[in-house]
């Protein structure tokens, strides 16, 4: 009874992990696609935030379900990924705007 339950649970975890990985991949591709278009720089940064931060976080959650032996490092990767990428988007936006606001002297 118990092993069957455990096997069922692990099968459920596998399915959930596959779903999360696929969803993350969809976010990746959908978020990277506007980079090829002609939108403004800041609009592209919005989409890049979706693809990199949110999509990669979903993928890391999927990996966490599948690979529980190394959970501390995966959790650290998740935490640092979300914080770094978000702040990185802010730095890219702020730096490019500052360069545009103070045009170089002729």
């Amino acid at each position: 009874m118990i092993p069957a339950l455990a096997a069922g649970f692990s099968g459920l975890a596998q399915i959930a992990s596959a779903l999360l990985l696929l969803l993350g991949l969809v976010f990746w591709i959908a978020g990277s696609w506007p980079l090829l278009g002609r939108g403004s720089y800041l609009t592209k940064l919005h989409y890049l935030g979706i693809s990199d931060t949110l999509g990669s976080a979903l993928m890391l959650l999927g990996l966490l379900l599948r690979f529980q032996r190394e959970w501390p490092l995966l959790l650290l990767a998740l935490l640092s990924l979300v914080v770094w990428n978000t702040i990185f988007g802010y730095v890219l936006a702020a730096c490019s705007q500052a360069a545009r606001r103070f045009p170089p002297a002729p």
Partner: peptide, 13 residues
């Protein structure tokens, strides 16, 4: 962090 994390908004400073 809170402003930039949501995809509709980015803080600029």
């Amino acid at each position: 962090f809170r402003i930039t994390l949501t995809p509709f908004t980015i803080a600029l400073g």
